[in-house]
């Protein structure tokens, strides 16, 4: 059973997640088909910057986050930004998009100059997230849980972060049981994706340098 307090927490997180989206004019540019390699690089960079700004705005709404130590706030955001971005991008590939949009996006990423060795695990991740068919609530909570991971580098007060993450994990676990009664492993599968995300994060800086070189 989800308590009233948990309902309120969930609503807050989902509302914040939906309210803070990448501006439409930035997103629309991605679907224009004519582009050079240089334009593509600039556009994906602009998109990434916008995603980070949106992520910070979302995170400010997570109850208790702004009360954390300021440097811990930065450490958490810095180490989770890539993972949160992959999670949000995955949504684009798992949602039903207007005909042709997913293909344009996929082609743009494949032609961006990022090496194939990084592209393949990225699309594998998008596929595995797509298979889960997460609801908006699950997506938003999983993002909050990713950001509030206590064992990130340079985080000083692990306990304070854990205190914020635990209620989110609890709500998500209950939600999974309620929404997927036929799949007792669903919650574990969601958490498994977080491990996959960490691997993507690990290779991300390597991926960026190869991209810049190209």
């Amino acid at each position: 059973e989800i308590t009233k307090e948990q309902q309120a927490l969930m609503k807050l997180i989902v509302d914040a997640y939906n309210r803070h989206q990448i501006p439409q004019d930035v997103a629309k540019k991605l679907l224009q088909e004519q582009y050079s390699a240089e334009e593509n690089f600039l556009l994906l960079t602009e998109m990434a910057t916008s995603q980070v700004q949106v992520l910070v705005e979302f995170t400010k709404n997570i109850p208790g986050f702004l009360a954390l130590d300021h440097e811990d706030q930065i450490a958490l955001l810095k180490s989770s930004a890539v993972e949160a971005m992959f999670l949000r991008s995955a949504q684009v590939f798992s949602k039903k998009m207007p005909s042709g949009h997913t293909e344009v996006l996929e082609e743009r990423i494949r032609k961006s100059g990022i090496s194939e060795e990084f592209i393949t695990p990225m699309f594998n991740f998008y596929k595995s997230i797509g298979e889960l068919q997460m609801t908006q609530e699950e997506q938003a909570l999983l993002t909050a849980i990713t950001i509030l991971t206590p064992d990130r580098p340079y985080v000083k007060d692990h306990q304070a972060v854990e205190k914020l993450q635990e209620p989110m994990l609890d709500v998500l676990r209950k939600l999974c049981v309620l929404q997927h009664p036929q799949e007792p492993q669903y919650f574990a599968r969601l958490l498994g994706r977080l491990t996959e995300l960490r691997t993507l994060n690990h290779y991300h800086s390597e991926m960026l340098s190869s991209w810049r070189m190209n």
Binding site: V56, E57, Q73, K78
Partner: peptide, 21 residues
């Protein structure tokens, strides 16, 4: 432009709420 900033700079600016700067 923000695209010339590093990740930490973008985060710090966004946390302070002065995205326009």
């Amino acid at each position: 432009p923000a695209s010339n900033l590093g990740l930490e700079d973008i985060i710090r600016k966004a946390l302070m709420g002065n995205l326009e700067e």
